[in-house]
Amino acid sequence: MPDQATNARPFIFEGRPAEDHWTMIREPESPLPDAPAIVPLAAWREEASNRQRAPLLGSDTELTPELAAELANAPLIAIDFPKFTDGRGYSTARLLRERFGYTGEIRAVGDVLVDQVFFLTRCGFDALSLREDQWLEDALQALNAFSRAYQPAVDEPEPLFRHRLREAVREAETSMV
């Protein structure tokens, strides 16, 4: 088995391996580099119009309408998973997409593991910055773990029960022909 462990975090954007142009700076010290950097929300607020800065939301950040309005122009929004078992970020991402209509990149960072990428994607994360030791090919495969879903989410606007109704109508029409 090849040793996958390197310092680079495997990165997936819109379902494909991609190059990550952003640096994560969890504890910013001034001056910040003149390059794209993801910084904690408070630091981002200090230069929110700088397109080289993106906000990092903690898993406990409450997404109020006021905050969502602030975030609307961010070049990307990173949501932190301090532990993969902390599921708050799933709700945050869905709210950003479904309630507040954010269309930019939403990136999962932190303890992001292969076996969470399917649900993360369903909830609206289009960028996945996996933990350093994760296997990229496993993660790509896990994106296709399921071919359908019962519930609507960001990837699928309708619940399965509405598809079933349409299928039943189609079948009825076919059988009449």
Partner: peptide, 17 residues
């Protein structure tokens, strides 16, 4: 059964508190 389907593999609620 409707609840079973809704709750099965719910993408948002797999890591509740």
């Amino acid at each position: 059964e409707l609840i079973r389907q809704w709750s099965t593999f719910h993408p948002e609620f797999t890591y509740l508190p």
